[in-house]
Design a protein around this nucleic acid. Sequence first.
DNA 1: CGCCAGTTTGAATTACATCAACTTCCGTGG
DNA 2: CCACGGAAGTTGATGTAATTCAAACTGGCG
Lengths: 276, 276
Amino acid sequence: MGVDAPRAEFAFQRKLSRFVTLSVEDMAILARLRDAEIAISADVDIVREGEVPHSLFMLTEGMAARYRVLPDGGRQILTFMLPGDVCDAHTAPRRRMDHAIGTIVASRVAMIGRAQFAAILARHPRLSAGLQCNALQEEAMLRERIVSLGRRDAHARVAYLLCELLWRFEAIGQAAGRRFCWPLTQAELGDALGLTAVYINRVLRDFRHSGLIAVQGGTLCVLDPDRLQRRAGFSPDYLNVGRTAEPPVFWGRTVRREAAACEPGLPPLGAVMGAA
Amino acid sequence: MGVDAPRAEFAFQRKLSRFVTLSVEDMAILARLRDAEIAISADVDIVREGEVPHSLFMLTEGMAARYRVLPDGGRQILTFMLPGDVCDAHTAPRRRMDHAIGTIVASRVAMIGRAQFAAILARHPRLSAGLQCNALQEEAMLRERIVSLGRRDAHARVAYLLCELLWRFEAIGQAAGRRFCWPLTQAELGDALGLTAVYINRVLRDFRHSGLIAVQGGTLCVLDPDRLQRRAGFSPDYLNVGRTAEPPVFWGRTVRREAAACEPGLPPLGAVMGAA
DNA sequence: CGCCAGTTTGAATTACATCAACTTCCGTGG
DNA sequence: CCACGGAAGTTGATGTAATTCAAACTGGCG
């Protein structure tokens, strides 16, 4: 069960590090979350709609999706979950889920008790601050999705999603060479973008033929990020990312200043996406 | 300036009352928020995109919309703001807005300093809990919008928005007789639902002709809520509404039990929408 | 091998957009 | 009082992006 080799920084740590400066202790606490990790195979629901989740989950490896099934059998994927994403930190306990979360590929999930989670947040303001930033970013992504579905055509929607994924994989250090894990079926893509699988297929073909992307064996490589961004109308600015200049005010409590110190070290945000 | 007559329960109080039981003191605190109220005429931005808001706003009368303008000049309305909605309680301070907020009709807005707001939350756990519930509900509405734009056709989208608005106006006690304030132009509706004004027009005509709704002089009346709901695939369950059975855990702090006591008084949720 | 899930391509269909009148409404001013 | 102007609502004709249906092709796997 335990992790035998001392793992390198894992996704969640990396992600939070973009928002706040984590101490060695913070890092250790996060690392310990992985102790209660379990493996889940592909196409399995982690949480079902209507259920009242009794604990929190964090995806540590693989990919999952939040989705809703409509009366007519159709399905809408709300967001894709990547390693380091927490299932429902923002859902109050004792509340029924209004959507399900299911794996897309075989994944690993760390289970975190609510009490334990609350205790960690209470004692570690930096982590708390980081998580708040993270929640804000997730909400920004929801808004972006609305813009996509409402006002972008099929090509721009796909392009945008690709940009978003690349950007998110970069944030967790899993997009070396603009190449990232690509386990999505075209049907799943369609369900996320409000399009049909066949049309997704044609859009992807166009992108391949025009040299924007290359797909092979479960990985996607973005060949021309600039052109892809332009096609998408993507700007990393819209995804709330930067460190907050001032520590956020929480529900009733201000977090210490140190949590949000500015620090070099990480490359400027969107460095890969932005560069020529 | 000042409110001369002792106002009845106002929108914000009513809304929070659906989530938590407010004490007389809580009510008084909320009422005092209206002291710093200002009037804003129609089609004016309260907050602009890119701006860093220095204080919070609460809409007390009228209607507003969060929106984004795209490079091609198109506009996407993310959500409509009704009386009692708070502008950006969930946006961390010192963070640039990724969307604008503008009035739709002449409105009134109460300005709340961040420090003052934080102080209130810190000292009044019930209000804090209510606001958290409110934030969850807003996020649920964002998800619903995604489902609408992704998987519903034009008729269902419009029907759904009407259901949502009726439901929200009920929650603030402003939908007597299933009749509510309707200042939206068809262009604005289109911008919210990813459709064109002309098509919105045709959909509304269909709804009027089939006896679902009636519009006259700035108010809309839902004649047949059942049929409208069916057309929309709407279920009030999806909008997180019920009181939490247990007090929510906040970022690091648990709120006292009393805040979430169950209380009769308000009609069962969705009573109007659900009844035959 | 044969099977199944996913991908790919084609042709017909449709739900919506676009363009362009024309109307209705309302405020404003002569 | 009616004339005017502008903004929103309404309707028709036409265009198109994306759906739908259908069939062939691919690759992994028992």
